[in-house]
Design a protein around this nucleic acid. Sequence first.
RNA 1: GCGGGUGUAGCUCAGUUGGUUAGAGUAUCGGCCUGUCACGCCGAGGGUCGCGGGUUCGAGUCCCGUCACUCGCGCCA
Length: 594
Amino acid sequence: MHAYRTHNCAQLNKENVGDTVRLSGWIHRKRDHGGVLFVDLRDHYGITQIVADEDSPALTLLDSLRLESVITIDGDVKARDAEAVNANLPTGDIEVFARSVTVQSNADELPLIVNSAEDYPEETRLKYRFVDLRRERVHNNIMLRNQVITSLRRRMTDQGFSEFQTPILGASSPEGARDYLVPSRLHPGKFYALPQAPQMFKQLLMVAGFDRYFQIAPCFRDEDLRADRSPEFYQLDFEMSFVTQEDVFQAIEPVLAGVFEEFANGKAVTPAGEFPRIPYAETMLKYGTDKPDLRNPLIISDVTHHFTSSGFGIFEKIVGGGGVIRVIPAPNTNEKSRKFFDEMNDWAKREGFAGLGYVTRKGGEFGGPIAKNHGPENMAKLYDELGLGENDGLFFAAGKEKDAARLAGAARTRVGETLELIEQDCFKFCWIVDFPMFEYDEEQKKVDFSHNPFSMPQGEMEALENTDPLEILAWQYDIVCNGYELSSGAIRNHRPDIMYKAFEIAGYSKQDVDENFSGMIEAFKLGAPPHGGSAPGIDRIVMLLADEPNIREVIAFPLNQRAQDLMMGAPNAVEPRALRDVHVRTVEPPKQPG
RNA sequence: GCGGGUGUAGCUCAGUUGGUUAGAGUAUCGGCCUGUCACGCCGAGGGUCGCGGGUUCGAGUCCCGUCACUCGCGCCA
């Protein structure tokens, strides 16, 4: 007989009645009836009820063991009486009568209870993550993650992509997010950087002629965290040669739609081939963000032209100063109290905005200061233009275009949530396309790249030479699902001449480019295919599929909000000798903990 | 860096207008119970009310400061 088990804890059923078996697992729960004791024995696969009565030599020992102790049971499979069958348990037709028990490991009093769905503080959960991971919800999340990754890998391979590994120790680059740095022992004063993404390497693999690359790639960014942002995360990184933007879309839509359909539990998923493409300018206007949640039916409109001389002083002033007025409809709010509208305004102020104006409408009657100043005829005209009804309220976001769009976007989300307009049980995908190549940097008072400097500008060299830089669009695209940015990608700029020119527009010399991106620019001088790709975030995909609000729920051992590992104690101070080895001296002594 | 929320028993929480010895559930320990499956019943132990200062006859409660966790803004091409 095997040392630990003949079956797992989900395997036994009626057909095993009479068998002598050996099971191992954790004591999930105990029910002690004096003369008879029930133990729910749990392993990765499931739960089996163990029973011991006064005829069982195992009774006393079993009774003395604490929850979560690990035991091995030798016993006999018995059918349960009809009234004792547990229909909720796959093994509920049987139980195992314990003949003997071996304690593999005793458990102390637990910091959190495994057999409960109770919400524990993250601090406790992360400190004892190995216990937390035994709990059903997180255990299932991590297994879902495994299945999603397996499925993604299969789908990519089926499409002719090959999996590669790229270096973890790389070169730091001034572009983009802050790097995690690793000091070099052999090269005093020099540092490696952990990859923010394998961007350069995957492009070099295209230059090397591999045609279709993918990788489940670990990425590291030393920036502050959010609920959907971890400093280390995984991307389905892929790149393709000799492709247009359209080819990239056609390659990845079936993968994403496929994996979502596979694990969405019947929720509706935007079908492959039907992901809407929304230009950046349009999404910023209609949704006030570059990651719109299309489950929210509300659409923002620009009504600036109505307020050039409206009689409403604040708006006139804003419009006169080059600002814009955006509106968010609040459908069927005729029954809503004034408090509802005022609280939206309070919320906007708390968020740091100047405020959120509003117009109420009840049975066709307009209310609120904006309507009063603007006049009922003008308001009716505006409502007709927007196609609004006689019981629809309207929120106003006014200011410089960027601020007004951001406020309108946040207000759209809040109005949609408050009025419960967000469609449930669906995954709505879209592409955001036509990102601007450049933007005007108000702080530095110069034109700069607005997103990725290595994207190919639409119109290529001709556009760079003959178009206002702020008008140039890039072959760059994001995939958005339910308001989460799942990936960003681009058709890359593989032409050194266009690269130099693009950087020149952003104020960088040929020498700057050569110094900072020598590896890539040199490669492009030796025969580079046109190529492009993208990199959907795996943690966010799993988070959406698991219906979790936080990325840490789908990571086995996540760092906390301050990028610490509470279980292992990272980051930690190191021996002075270790610092000497890598030629590092700390300036401030680390704070004494506690 | 900035703003919001939270912090009371191992854990989850309650604690009124500032007023007796800070409570409940759960876990732990002890006792009872032969059919439970969140078993039930009886009992016990368990507290730096995050920390420091202040106001007050009196502070878990009010004020100031600070720390930790968390959510958001900045940041994240």
